[in-house]
Nucleic acid binder design. Structure first.
Lengths: 354, 354
DNA sequence: TTGAAAGCGCTAACAG
DNA sequence: CTGTTAGCGCTTTCAA
């Protein structure tokens, strides 16, 4: 039991007026100190701080928001059902937001479609936020909503006709290209792609990165395979693929799908990586400890969250300035044991390499 | 571009007074309609709703909070660094909170120690919340803070001397017991336990569940192994364990640690499950697709979150009533391929079974 | 069933 | 450098 915990149960919660009285200054001076405004004498500042501390004073944010028109909160619209990726991103966003001195309001829309995003945004705006982050929205349609605060789209172009939209990249396309190039450089004739759900924007980006790499090498583009991020869907794709002897390399749009894929392949008697190479997407540390350890690309969640929040906060605090632009996050390929050169008979001729 | 999106950029944001004027009623009547209070004629209600809709009116939560003293928000203090478990729990909490008609404020404390929790709680209180959920706090110490709102501790007893603390179980101890019993029933002499970091409360619970099961069978209790939830730490524990021929069964306190453990064991030439059985803890779907598929127990995140939020909301809305008590979440064992009877020479005599 | 008046606790604008 | 005055947009009395 600490001193504070033992404080009189029925003592009224202290107000800024109580602090002012105890410090012997006006309420406005208390306000100045608490907001780090200039033109306060060191002596006054010291006394206010001491009084606030003694009283256990805590500022009322609702009152501040009402009076100032600013909430010092940011909102995030997240895609809650998905796995590792969205969860990691959310954790890093929270961290970056807090480091910037803002509070965070979160709404998940398992349904990332425009209406779902519109609902979530509306509710965030109502609750009061100075800016919004829309994390990995889906690809289609425009959000039917008028919004006055800056909105950052993370990992997608604005799906939105607001005047203050911003974007920050997750580096998705470059990562997908790097994953595909890795397989091509190993000597594979071409690379299959197991894509995520088409309605996710990042799915489109990964497909394009894969196509970029294929096109740059003049490799033939095989038909797309479809999954839903789950290992189970990767397993299903793997069963379909196992009977096709021409397949020697697959780039899966998520680590878990890659794991399911490998499992199905091995069950069907195809060896990984000797017969078929598999590369994932995410960089989940645990998959360094399965057999074979999964080759993958690491998503730069921390860097992307930090950059995005920086840009958003800048827009919130400097409404009239030119929006800052977010830096490109790093591309990191993690080569482990699930990728190797193709079997001898199916090796690509070095001469055909561009 | 929708009609609303195209609305005059410079139109002032509508207030409840605007709605009142358009509907031809008083502001108070607007307030009554918006708060679903009784004593409003159907006619008045209809007109208010129509006016609000036409104006695109959105209630200002800061003003409401200031006037009413209630925010209709709940806060959650989460342990942000950890993996699947904390992230899933957070998603389910968000869902349950939103279903209850509350907004959510989130703060992560990578450091779940009492001071970290105290900081997080303080900041939540300042931002304005009607109740707080502390998700899986650490075990030691009391939080030095006076709090007037109800606080729910999820998966731990209150580390806290407030008058309005509540708890809801994650069923951890029962799950750990079930995992251990499963191995014992398979015929193992005893079961080793790879525990999480000691400062986590759930670690303590898992250890106790494991001890319960061992004691109930009169099995000898081997020394604890320590990990940090990561696959890497499981791998390290596995290397240490591999040389001990007496080990035939291990219960790991997390799926990822279990995966690392299995990897190390196999590298050292011990077969899983033929020589050593391994059971995890979490129930991550992806580990059904590794070799061998991981036997585990499923954490009831959804049920626990729902129950916890129900109890908390009850306490918020009925401050004087007896607190509701949270139901016990279900125990679910998921038997897959990583557990089997011990090798013939080391089988437990059926007669020694209690 | 409805309305008028009086704040909630803070900050903005201005004056000293 | 400091204080005074007037709201912010809503809900709470309490009276009609």
């Amino acid at each position: 039991m600490t001193p504070e915990a033992g404080r009189d149960r029925n003592a009224p919660v202290p107000r800024s007026a109580d602090v002012a009285r105890l410090a012997g200054v006006s309420r406005k001076t208390v306000s100045r100190v608490l907001n780090d405004e200039p033109y306060v004498s060191d002596e006054a500042r010291r006394r206010v701080l001491a009084a606030a501390d003694e009283l256990g004073y805590r500022l009322n944010h609702a009152a501040r928001a009402l009076a100032s028109g600013r909430t010092r909160s940011l909102g995030v619209v997240a895609l809650g059902t998905a796995g590792y990726g969205t969860a990691s991103l959310l954790v890093h966003i929270e961290h970056a937001v807090r480091d910037s001195g803002y509070a965070l309001r979160v709404i998940n829309t398992p349904d990332g479609a425009p209406e779902g995003i519109a609902d979530a945004l509306g509710s965030l705006l109502e609750q009061g936020v100075d800016g919004v982050i829309v994390s990995e929205p889906f690809v289609k349609g425009q959000v039917p909503l008028r919004v006055d605060v800056p909105v950052l789209f993370l990992g997608a172009p604005p799906s939105f006709t607001g005047s203050r939209t911003l974007t920050a990249s997750l580096g998705t396309r470059e990562l997908a290209r790097a994953a595909t190039e890795h397989l091509l450089e190993l000597g594979h004739e071409t690379v299959h792609h197991l894509a995520g759900p088409r309605k996710w924007y990042v799915t489109k980006d990964r497909i394009e990165g894969w196509r970029d790499a294929l096109a740059a090498r003049g490799a033939h583009e095989p038909p797309l395979l479809n999954g839903d991020w789950s290992a189970e869907s990767g397993y299903a794709a793997g069963r379909a693929l196992a009977s096709d002897a021409s397949v020697t390399a697959v780039f899966a749009a998520g680590d878990e799908m890659a794991i399911g894929l490998v499992h199905a392949l091995r069950e069907a008697g195809r060896r990984v990586p000797e017969d078929i190479s598999v590369v994932g997407f995410d960089g989940q540390p645990v998959f360094a400890y399965v057999s074979p350890p999964l080759t993958t690309v690491r998503q730069p969640f921390e860097a992307a969250a930090r950059e995005g929040v920086r840009v958003l906060v800048h827009a919130v605090e400097h409404p009239d300035a030119e929006p800052a632009s977010a830096g490109e996050p790093p591309v990191e390929l993690v080569v482990r044991g699930s990728s190797a050169p193709p079997p001898p008979g199916r090796r690509r001729s070095p001469l055909r390499t561009t």
